[in-house]
Design a binder for these strands. Structure first.
Lengths: 355, 355
DNA sequence: ACCAGGACTTAAAGCGCTTTAAATTGTCCT
DNA sequence: AGGACAATTTAAAGCGCTTTAAGTCCTGGT
């Protein structure tokens, strides 16, 4: 982990200052210090440290050693300024979303592979998208990867003039933006196929409210139901993305007398609300009623839920987002591209045969 | 949200280039552009934009307008380089932790109040603490706020030579580092007090494994039990921070014949495992057995769990962390400081009277 | 009129690096 | 030995801002 840092600690001695707060913080070594140590110009040192071909092997070795001895670490701000490139991809996230967490993880590895770094800026209750994006821009991000932005399409289009924008996880109608997302309707279709295959016919859908995603998923439900000849059983209950909505919907069903044999919810949170309400009413899942969610949320994996759900292939989306950014930045692709991935149904324990 | 960006869009016209990818990206306006527009020097513009007193009101207004017209936004990298200050606090997080998410939220507001910005660097499966911290340093963070670091104390101490380190959420024995944390033993003590007050005597504790935090909580349990004269009932079951561990522990209790009247778990994840196992065995909670966790995790708030737990006052910890950093940076405090906050018991629905 | 002093402005020198053109060194022929 | 050419190395000019010392202009006072 941090152990290697000790090398840098030794270097402090050279600086004369032992304690940080004694005679001011010991200045971090600069390129010049490394250069002086090996008796070369800063230009050569810079070349070596960046792995640019040119310097002789002997020079290379000496510089590397000197840099290591001093615990030298390039100053990003200066490099960025001088090279006119930050090699930074700005990523806007909602730090509370487990799914975003997963995306970030993969974005990191994908970016690293192509020599870019990430700078994260999160939304919070008091930090809106504009602020978050401005921060990314202030850091000179070369491209903006926005996870689930809610800003209107035209605002995003304007933003795109400052730096290529890659929208992840949200459908955007006819703009020149790059978009990476999964086919939400297809995810629900797979769920319905799965349930229908198990013999279910009365499959209720708990809606996710307004928003493109909710719309797509709802459409997926309707279309799939019809395709299975279950058009007459289509039944959409109002809901949203919360657990509370799921409970409400389930209670509604319970109060209604006859229960459907399966409930598909807009997302996992909502599905869990359904599960909770059913459990409280003593309805066996998946014995009497099957339940499915969407998102493959961390929640759904908890053994106490073990929810059948739809996974959005975070890894693939992350890779495509980074690729899109790199194509814009290094291969001057000009035409926008939309990558629509197919989600994957994850069958767990809340769905079972019926009939 | 992003709507205001449109102003910047208009400015593009001046640049001659309409499309981003036509004749190269339209360069973002520089200080010089703003200065030229109002016929002043860049020095004056800089002064105005930073709110430094000096420029006349007339100048101030004109500069502000010009900057707005151009959609000017200062380049952080250049400012940092020139001023030798980044006014950046580096924050190391585990992006998958809901608790860290909460801390970050409050860190943002606390930092903003004192004129600092945050730069986040997360741990992932393939990104260790060293990498995360190096990134923060490369951005020239002036101080490092590390959320739950696992690096050994001496490594952290060395790091502290590069920039003041503030450790959050972890106890560190005698170092010169600033630490902000909550009293873990006290949190468990409060839980035990609560349960004992409800008449419980047989209170089992499911352990959290090794690590300072687990140690503190376990100690809190033991001490509190003794204080209530329940020393004979002390019973610690092996476990860790996972749901699986909770289930295992609960099954062990179920197999053991007589159940305790209350189970206190190392954390919420673990507590939820306990809940799941008990539910599966048909044991009523809190009817027959009361259960409590620790962390006030998002999970614990789900209505289907509604778990009694201990909250770590994220807001307070965040504020103290930022304050500590600012004291180091702007008020040259040299003596290390440890802030130990008192956690707060959050009584929900899994604990009830007994006896 | 003339000058001190206040109110503004600005020229210019960096910050720590990258990059390009030019200089230096070394090598190999003839 | 002299020169061409390749291999290295480096001087120097920035990158876009901040900052400080040094102006420039007025205002009044005398």
């Amino acid at each position: 982990m941090l152990h290697q840092e000790i090398r840098a600690g030794e270097a402090q001695v050279e600086d004369g200052g032992s304690g940080r707060h004694q005679s001011g913080a010991p200045k971090r070594p600069r390129l010049e210090d490394v250069a002086a140590r090996v008796g070369l110009s800063t230009a050569s040192v810079s070349l070596v440290l960046r792995g640019v071909p040119g310097p002789s092997e002997r020079t290379r070795q000496r510089v590397l050693k000197a840099a290591a001895d001093l615990g030298y670490q390039a100053d990003r701000t200066a490099s960025t300024l001088a090279s006119r490139r930050s090699r930074l991809l700005g990523v806007m996230i909602d730090i509370r979303s487990p799914f975003h967490a997963e995306l970030v993880e993969h974005l990191h590895t994908a970016a690293e592979e192509v020599g870019y770094d990430l700078v994260l800026s999160t939304l919070t209750r008091t930090r809106d998208e504009r602020t978050a994006v401005d921060t990314l821009l202030a850091f000179r991000s070369e491209a903006l990867i926005l996870l689930g932005p809610t800003a209107p399409a035209d605002a995003l289009a304007v933003l795109d003039n400052k730096a290529p924008v890659i929208v992840v996880g949200r459908r955007i109608a006819d703009t020149a933006l790059d978009v990476v997302r999964t086919a939400d309707d297809d995810g629900v279709r797979q769920t319905i196929d799965h349930l229908a295959g198990l013999g279910h016919r009365e499959i209720v859908y708990v809606d996710g409210g307004k928003g493109v995603i909710a719309t797509d998923r709802r459409r997926g439900y309707r279309t799939a139901m019809r395709r299975h000849g279950l058009g007459d059983h289509i039944r959409v209950l109002a809901g949203d993305h919360t657990e509370a909505a799921g409970e409400r919907a389930a209670r509604h069903l319970l109060d209604g007398g006859r229960l459907p044999t399966a409930v598909v919810a807009y997302n996992d949170q909502c599905a869990i609300g359904v599960l909770a309400a059913l459990a409280r009413a003593g309805v066996a899942v998946p014995g009497e009623v099957s339940v499915a969610g969407y998102d493959d949320d961390t929640l759904s994996r908890l053994s106490c839920f073990n929810l059948t759900t739809v996974s959005q292939s975070a890894r693939e989306q992350a890779r495509h987002a980074v690729t899109a950014a790199v194509e814009r930045l290094d291969q001057d692709r000009a035409e926008p591209r939309e990558v629509v991935l197919t989600p994957r149904l994850v069958v767990r324990g809340t769905t079972a045969g019926h009939g």
